[in-house]
Design a binder for these strands. Structure first.
Lengths: 110, 110
DNA sequence: TTACTTCATTGCAATATTACGATGAATCAA
DNA sequence: TTGATTCATCGTAATATTGCAATGAAGTAA
């Protein structure tokens, strides 16, 4: 019904899904890639960099911030964004553990 | 508008988003984890394993199969599923490259 | 054949996501 | 103060996703 039955899954499964969902949109992928590419913080030139309207970018940034993957700090009229290194590392570990499950090729398999 | 503007992003960004979206639901995470846990193929006991209705599981399986992450082979009245090792590895490389971007902590950052 | 099993598909309702125009809040410059 | 700039929020429309009951398709067993 458009609503996920999160209560029947483990906390780990829900956490993996939440982080993965953050990367489930190319705009958020592009935002994060740009934050990595630029060494310093990005002060809101993301709207020009990516071809979406300002409210849309703002919305994507909010989602990433809510997950803790990025930080934003007000600087005058501008807001500067950057990756949150600690949380990024934590997220990376959680997802890596899931992705790196070994694929053992069995004989009597499909 | 509920529709992603994929045309303004690179093929790489869209590919990352597509794979990530596959893991963006706990049911699909649970399905994949079970396929890894069980050595042999799984013949449709996923409905019992996970607490969702049979059509719902079937729908999630279809999405994973469309992405190439799992294979399904008919065996009598049953269908056996397993991870597609090659495509799983390919996906892992694409996502790892994105996740492993180095977080360089700068001085005059947020 | 009929009955049964297993899984896919259809159709639909409820909710979520994406996108943006309009507007608001906060700061700076003059 | 006024005006300009920057970004967040609100409101809304379009589309996507999730979930399941009902049904269909394909095989097995008798």
């Amino acid at each position: 019904m458009g609503i996920s039955k999160t209560e029947i899954f483990t906390a780990q499964q829900n956490e993996i899904a939440l982080f993965a969902k953050a990367f489930g949109h190319p705009a958020r992928v592009a935002i994060l890639q740009h934050l990595f590419k630029i060494d310093t913080c990005v002060c809101g030139d993301l709207v020009n960099e990516i071809g979406l309207a300002q409210p849309t970018i703002s919305q994507h940034l909010k989602e990433l911030k809510n997950l803790g993957l990025i930080q934003g700090s007000v600087e005058g009229t501008r807001v500067c964004y950057c990756i949150d290194p600690g949380n990024w590392t934590k997220m990376k570990q959680i997802l890596s553990e899931f992705l790196n499950q070994d694929v053992s090729i069995k004989k009597d398999c499909c």
